[in-house]
Nucleic acid binder design. Structure first.
Length: 325
RNA sequence: GGGGGCGUGGUGAAGCAUGGAGUUCACGCCGGCCUGUCAAGCCGGAGGUCGCGGGUUCAAAUCCCGUCGUCCCCG
């Protein structure tokens, strides 16, 4: 991750509290020491698992059946804070309620209000001044609910702000409108973090609307599924046409994978279920994504972000049909 | 010279004894999906004169005969 240019890594509260356990991580010096990562770490609160694992939610918290042993687990705003303070990331997130889209207005509205109530409890439970706590905005793709959630969250005075509840089924233009309703309500001096957004077009659109920080499984998951990200469009490495292709994944890429091995070899590793393929391809997709962000920062600094974004999108769109790049 | 096994989408197998719509499985091929990760995935599609010829039968991948290919055994 260092070689690829990652500035920060994300870890997960729900999974780590169940295995290996927050107390164990704390005993071993916290996440930085435990995993040997010296840069910043952010932990998600477990809110995403409220979406993906579908626990029962009540005012107290979310009641899960453990993914690992079937036991029942209560994740409340206070418990999420306690666990995150034991894990010791630089940035902790409040426990929020994230609903998949499309959803009835009432469901989205309830998620906004529940998240606001839990946010207050999280702030109260937060006791580590060396750890930043971010609030999370919800509201689906409804501008009114977005504004309500953003204002309410901003008023609580967090160190930074997550913009959640996106990349869960909505169309790109709906997401962009939701961001446009959200960002102006958040303090300009604080970080705006779009949670779970990671495709090039989506990230560029969000940057153009004032967002600063992102995290996503997109590059790594697509890599494991054989989808290769490049500036000239993405392609599926499993296609037979790559079986004897001696070129690197991307001629212009600086990553270790592109400097070392061919498409044909990587495809072979992939089709023979060799786990090395996952790592080599992830290395490339992460490099692509993080280099794009580095170029984005330069473009912003030089005052040419809009044309940069449009050029990238046009270039990727143009080559999409040709596939082979 | 004699005896036996096997020929089923691109590949490998089931199916055949007791005939009933080319059915099934794996791999491969093509397409779609994946976004704060119960990872290594999910969904869909295309593709077959059942080696070939003949016979029996209302009906044959299946039963019978012949033939070709292939593998094995005996001499």
């Amino acid at each position: 991750l260092e070689s690829v240019g990652a500035q920060m890594v994300l870890a997960n509260t729900y999974h780590l509290m169940l295995r290996p356990g927050a107390e164990l991580v704390a005993e071993l010096g916290g996440l930085h020491s435990f995993m040997g990562w010296n840069g910043p770490i952010l932990t998600d609160s477990g809110g995403y698992q409220i979406f993906s694992l579908d626990p029962v939610i009540d005012e107290e918290g979310a009641r899960f059946r453990s993914t690992y042993d079937g036991s029942s687990v209560l994740l409340s705003p206070e418990e999420s804070m306690r666990v995150q303070q034991l894990l010791g990331p630089d940035v902790a997130m409040v426990l929020d309620v994230l609903v998949g889209l499309p959803a009835p207005a009432e469901v989205v509205s309830d998620a906004v209000e529940q998240t606001l109530r839990w946010s207050e409890r999280a702030l109260t439970a937060h006791a580590r001044p060396d750890q930043a706590l971010f609030g999370i905005v919800q509201g689906g793709v409804d501008p009114v609910l977005r504004r309500r959630s953003a204002r309410g969250t901003a008023a609580l005075g967090f160190a930074g702000f997550g913009i959640g509840g996106l990349s869960v089924g909505e169309a790109a233009d709906e997401r962009n409108r939701a961001l446009e309703a959200t960002v102006p309500e958040l303090p300009a001096s604080k970080v705006r973090y779009v949670m779970g957004l990671g495709d090039a077009e989506g990230v560029l659109d969000a940057v153009g609307r004032g967002c600063d920080l992102f995290d996503c499984v997109w590059p790594t998951r697509l890599a494991r599924h054989g989808r290769i990200l490049t500036l000239d469009g993405d392609f599926n490495l499993r296609r037979a046409e790559y079986s004897s292709d001696s070129r690197p994944l991307d001629e212009t890429c600086r990553c270790h994978t592109c400097a070392t091995v061919s498409r044909a070899y990587l495809r072979h590793l992939l089709t023979t279920n060799e786990l090395t393929a996952f790592r080599l391809l992830s290395l490339h997709n992460l490099t692509f994504t993080l280099d794009l962000m580095a170029q984005t920062r330069v473009a912003i600094a030089e005052g040419r972000f809009d044309s940069f974004r449009d050029d990238v999108k046009a270039r990727r769109r143009g080559m999409q049909a040709g596939a082979s790049g």
